[in-house]
Design a binder for these strands. Sequence first.
RNA 1: GGCCCGUUGGUCUAUCGGCCAGGACACCAGCCCCUCACGCUGGAGAGGCGGGUUCGAUUCCCGCACGGGCUACCA
Length: 486
Amino acid sequence: MSVRTRFAPSPTGFLHIGGVRTALFNWLLARHHGGQFLLRIDDTDQQRHVEEAVAQILEGFRWMGIDWDEGPEVGGPHAPYFQSRRTERYTEAARRLVASGHAYRDYSTEAERAADKESSERAKVAYRFRRKPTTPEAEARFEAEGRPFALRFRVPLGRTLIIHDLIKGDVAQKTDEIGDFVLVRPDGSPLYNFASVVDDVEMRITHVVRAEEHLSNTFSQLLVFEALGYPLPAFAHVPYVAEPGSKKKLSKRFGAVGLDHFIREGFLPEAMMNYLARLGWSFDASSEIFTRAELIEKFSLDRVNSSPASHDPDKLFWIESEWMKTLPMERKVEGVLPFLTREGLVSGPLDAPTRARIEAVITALGDRLKVFSDILKLGRYFFTEALTHDPDAVKKRLRKQGVPAMLEQLDAVLGAVEPFDVPTLEKAIHDYAEMHGHPMGQVVNPLRVATTGQAVGPGLYECLAILGRNSCRARIKATLEMLRQG
RNA sequence: GGCCCGUUGGUCUAUCGGCCAGGACACCAGCCCCUCACGCUGGAGAGGCGGGUUCGAUUCCCGCACGGGCUACCA
């Protein structure tokens, strides 16, 4: 039987990286075994703009390269893949449970339950909902009155249930600890513990891989599977993701925890996938970098840690930089372009000279470019004549005795260099420094700040060559003017 | 409150009773060097606490503490 896994996000439109990791584990497991991965939208208590939210979720998965064999947009043999459109199936399953005596109508009111709960608390005993004695006459009367009822599962007492969890190991629970839980609300809508069982069975899910918060509820689900006469899937409960440097659960409040943030910053999907896979999973004692194909080949649930992993932005950044190093120029240009366009630094269709300039800048930046948005932080001055001086750099490199005079001389040197390319520039500036007895740093650094405005950047000769003679000289003039004015 | 899960350096992890506890990120120092980044070399840094079992416990058991979850007509 082929392995079938699923991820069932709520349509909030927000993709928490913890959720993406869970989805990734599901996807990797399915791909590893040559099985199927499905997406199912969990919109049982449906809210606003579901469609837009779903579109956002799908976009996130597509960006990561997590493809789904069945689900929204692609359909499949078990459609629909929206729980809100599957009510008949839940109703039918509920009918069977009632018929077999596993479920019953609960006519209790909220006030009654609250009172029971309170008296349990006062008596210092755990509150569990149990069916109260009733009579056929009372039932008939309620029905005739049209009194609303919820459908509850009759939990059998005195049993011990065991989950053979693929990550957590064997976990046991006594059924006495489980109250009679609601399967269907009075309005006919199903609850998670019921709907997910029905769907997982109908969709032939073989491995339920989901967040650890569902572990306790799995016992209730076990009873539903059993009552419906369904075979059990395998379960694997993935620990939560913690905040950096802590064991506290990573919440939205922490900040950058949405996949959209990393997409917007210009991270690589390969890096994101690599990082998320390694968060709580390892292949061996030393491997860190994995391609998508390697992850598929090497992933297994038994190497997923049973304890929580903290999100580590530094590690993500390092993995990102490793991936960026390997990226071909073509994809770097493609990745960087939206950022340049958005800032108005490049406009219109990409012509050959512009492409050449972008490539030259990317080459010059080298490993300094780690995420695509770095093109703006590190390379902005290559795309605009507007020179913005970093105040600290000006203070450190330009406000020095003799610097303006030296810049005048360097301006002349640049005016005479022919051709205006890296080796020639390098030689000319070396010669200049030597002639005047200056250490290289004392020449190069001021010239860098004068032409780029920044204290750090690619090799100076590369910078000069990309900017071109006219631009360099104009910038030196502007810098000298700026220095004169104070 | 009850029940369940978890606890190795700051972080991700290795170890499936023998450990002088290994690797990676981050950190620190040095080298390279026009700055930064890259790269290279070196360094510091860990088994929550208390009991047991054992010749020997990070590894097995118990308790406590801490973190997390469930206990909902949330998912």
